[in-house]
């Protein structure tokens, strides 16, 4: 590990990495159109059951159609960030451990986690983000426009939720330093995160605790929606901050430990 770089240099490195990542991804353009259809299909798959349900009842677990749209929108936004920025990078780390390219990454004079998390992007996921903004706008059209403070709170919670999910991903990746075989745990994590597509109140008991503390996808989906609706209280906000910071600290610790035990693919 190298000495921590100073702030301006960190920024230069980050923007250079992002530029290279984007240029790499834009070499493959046909995928863009296909991803548009995939993204559209996903949106319909989430909205169709909701439409059937809200066609017959006005509210489910305290959420109406417009309010549920907000959750769907934040879920899509969360998926766009995870699928477009996090998954391609951390997936590549697993490959790097297996094949040994991780060595080259560690040789660079910048923090390895920073490089490992910003090497790649999947720009086709931008469709999910576009759909997300559309769905949130559709929901807000029904619920009425909240004030700027609510938007800021929603955005902050979304970031906290994404940070928490990123940290969980990193924890899973750290496991593959020791057990390369279980690298598909990350798909299991993705499958569990799918539960974040509905308002968290439809889950009861253990399931709800699980989705707000263990795999806290609700932090990035239901809670920002609550913030826009003005239903967020101090306790929830504090919980979100504690959970996401805690997970991030844990994942950073696990990453550093994992790097220390990394022995390269050939040795």
């Amino acid at each position: 590990m190298s000495a921590p770089p100073n702030a301006p240099r960190l920024w230069t490195v980050c923007s250079a990495l992002a530029r290279v990542a984007l240029m790499n991804a834009l070499q493959y353009r046909e995928g863009f159109l296909v991803e548009f259809f995939v993204g559209t299909g996903n949106v319909v798959a989430i909205l169709l059951p909701l439409a059937v349900i809200f066609d017959r009842s006005a509210s489910v677990a305290g959420w109406n159609w417009d309010q549920s749209l907000l959750v769907t929108g934040f879920f899509l936004l969360q998926s766009a960030v995870m699928g477009g920025l996090v998954e391609p990078n951390l997936g590549a780390v697993v490959e790097g451990i297996r094949a040994g390219q991780m060595d080259y990454l560690l040789l660079r004079p910048v923090d390895a986690q920073l490089v490992a998390s910003t090497q790649r992007v999947a720009p086709a996921k931008v469709w999910d983000a576009v759909a997300a903004v559309g769905v949130i706008g559709w929901g807000l059209h029904g619920t009425g426009l909240p004030d700027l403070g609510a938007f800021a709170a929603a955005f902050a919670l979304l970031l906290a939720g994404i940070l928490a999910m990123y940290s969980l991903w990193l924890l899973v990746i750290c496991l593959s330093f020791w057990f390369v075989r279980v690298d598909n745990l990350r798909y299991l994590l993705g499958a569990v995160a799918d539960a974040g597509r509905w308002p968290v109140d439809i889950y009861r008991g253990v399931a709800r605790v699980f989705l707000t503390v263990v795999v806290p996808v609700a932090l990035a989906t239901s809670w920002p929606a609550l913030a826009l609706l003005g239903r967020l209280d101090v306790a929830l906000t504090a919980q979100a901050i504690v959970v996401s910071c805690g997970l991030f600290a844990l994942s950073r610790w696990a990453w550093l430990r994992a790097l220390r035990s990394y022995t390269s693919a050939s040795s």
């Binding site: 489910v60 075989r181 598909n184 745990l185 798909y187 499958a191 799918d194 509905w198």
Partner: peptide, 29 residues
């Protein structure tokens, strides 16, 4: 180990059940 993890990833029916179950509390659909 991989196999079991793959199998567990097919949890969407449970996610769907959670939604439909909550929707049916008020009465059958």
């Amino acid at each position: 180990a991989e196999m079991v993890i793959w199998i567990l990833s097919a949890t969407l029916p449970l996610v769907m059940l959670a939604l439909w179950d909550a929707a049916a509390i008020a009465g059958p659909l």
